[in-house]
Design a protein around this nucleic acid. Structure first.
Lengths: 351, 351
DNA sequence: CTGAAAGCGCTAACAC
DNA sequence: GTGTTAGCGCTTTCAG
């Protein structure tokens, strides 16, 4: 194992270009006060020598680390990977996050921390001290954890809260959950459904409430009932099944169900199959996650397409822009979702 | 944006414990020549102050960066994320890689570079200069790219080649593809199949050949033919379909097909459905990837379960161990695959 | 076994 | 506009 030192440093470039270290530094950092010709000369040397600044040294000298940390919930994330249920949340995050980072010369580092831990502050502080990121992207449920947001604020680290719309420190960037719920509900109303059930997500996610709001609003506008049509799960299969059961076993069961996650939609589908309910003839089903698997079940599920990659991209861009001195915008960024109509929704029988 | 400096440095710890910087450093790095009591005293101070070393500073001073880079093919990886075909390769890599890194105080940084690029060397050199990783994990097809392996070797960076068994620099860690192919073939032979087709992967992947070898060996041992039973695809749906077509349109079509990827298996399944071939009655299908989606199609596919998380974990562990002075083991590490039997395989009609 | 000195590659502040 | 000086936090020599 050879002792690895930087092969070509700022010093080599300076010597090669016949300028001072500082000038090279200014060129690297696109700072003003460098004559164009000087800049070109330096850039030529950089290119010729294949010089790349060491992020460690840059960080050391009190500048940027060019590292953005994506903070995910350890337990949930690992469970998702192990269970292999087809959720590609992390992949979509990487897609949006890594590419946007790359555009600006940054890199994304995924970090897992436990939300429900009394030593979460120590854990986070440790990660920050070790990595010294220029920004942090918070994903649910971290985005709404005051312990985390307060700590980040106190540390003066710019961060974005994905999936949160609450005011406060950090950029709020979220999918338009209310609009998405409206979209799904309107689709079903247009098909002629009059009893449209919703399996909501757990209360510890802000977005659960927003979806209920959207669903409720459309039904109210259409003069349709909500009574006995709202159930709740925790996004998982089991609770989804229980919720679907409650809905279908009610006095006046729905002819369509919107589930707040793919697993809950799958559970609903399974239940329908068991009961001999034709989908979509006797029951239409809409999923709220367009994960890969919902396209491969029978029938393929109509689903809300969550623009996770775009949301993450926006979050990263905001964090980087703030570091670069951009205006610390106040309003939350809301990214619209779309609806992918597939075979699991149709006109209700007799409509 | 507060000027962020390290809140608590090695200096604070040294002062608190009443020792020199050097002694603290020795404790941090678990170096010898520190009296137990001294060590305890220092560790107490570290805990009390919540000290965490800055990786930037550690790297600067010529030590480890505690960063491992996972090098993936840019084009393929991004395409996989965008297409959302349910492949969870990256997730499984992160699962094995991140957790193993974490166990040793390292972090995993995913980096995308183009394999088929003439400036790949510049790209890689740049990433190395910027990140200065302690190790690199090469994934296919990078693992077999001599431009990359030579460069890494020249740089003295320890690395692992996932999916490669070739001798040479870097740890070779691979799934037992030959054994996996044997497993799948034996399963079909045991069910009574006598004409078992294989849709191989592309030649630019070493493992494609190993799978053919395993398949061929089992058939030879069982005295079964291979003639007209071997087709080839590029792991994608389209070429998989063409390959399945070639196999099924031959003079004596197979009663079972092993596809070297989930997409090619899905293509085979679709073709069978179009032709009214009952699966598994008229045609058994085995997939080589146990990605989430193959459990959600009908019928659920029997599939080789690739232990990608474990392979990555082993690769990371080897790289870290080498840095720590472990013996640079020569033999490739081969991790066995298993077979998940589902409803897409059964006895052939009339058997 | 422990400490003191030197310097890693870079940027901040200040001079010129 | 450009160069000079002084560190950032840590690990490496090398003395004791």
């Amino acid at each position: 194992m050879a002792r690895r030192r930087q092969a070509v440093t700022i010093r080599h470039v300076a010597a090669d270009a016949g300028v001072s270290l500082q000038t090279v530094s200014r060129v690297i950092n696109k700072e003003p006060n460098v004559r164009p010709e000087m800049m070109e000369r330096v850039q030529a040397s950089i290119a010729r020598l294949g010089y790349v600044p060491s992020i460690a040294a840059q960080r050391m000298a009190g500048s940027r680390s060019y590292l953005i940390v994506a903070l995910n919930d350890r337990e949930r994330t690992i469970a998702g990977w192990r269970n292999r249920q087809g959720t590609d949340w992390v992949d979509q995050m990487l897609l949006g996050g890594m590419l946007t980072c790359a555009e600006h010369g940054y890199r994304l580092l995924v970090e897992l921390v436990d939300t429900h831990s009394d030593h979460i502050e120590r854990e986070l502080l440790g990660a920050i001290a070790a990595i010294q990121p220029d920004g942090v992207i918070l994903t649910p449920p971290h985005s709404e954890n005051p312990l985390i947001t307060r700590l980040l604020e106190a540390q003066g680290i710019s961060f974005a809260r994905i999936g949160s719309l609450k005011p406060g420190a950090g950029f709020a960037v979220a999918i338009d959950d209310e609009g998405a719920a409206r979209l799904a509900t309107e689709h079903l109303v247009a098909l002629g459904h009059r009893r449209i059930g919703l399996i909501a997500g757990p209360d510890d996610y802000e977005l659960s409430g927003r979806r209920v709001t959207g669903w409720r609003a459309v039904l109210a506008e259409a003069g349709l009932p909500t009574e006995g049509l709202l159930a709740q799960g925790d996004f998982g299969f089991e609770t989804g099944r229980a919720a679907a059961l409650a809905l279908l076993d009610g006095p006046a069961p729905p002819s369509a169900i919107i589930a707040s996650s793919d697993q809950m939609a799958l559970a609903t589908l399974e239940l329908a199959r068991e009961r001999g309910l034709d989908v979509p003839g006797a029951l239409s089903v809409v999923s709220f996650d367009d994960t890969p698997i919902v396209r491969f079940v029978h029938p393929p599920l109509t689903a809300i397409v969550q623009p996770i990659a775009e949301v993450t991209a926006r979050a990263v861009a905001l964090v980087i822009a703030e570091r670069a001195g951009g205006a610390p915008l106040a309003a939350p960024v809301i990214v619209p979702a779309t609806l992918a109509v597939r075979a699991s929704t149709g006109r209700p029988v007799g409509a």
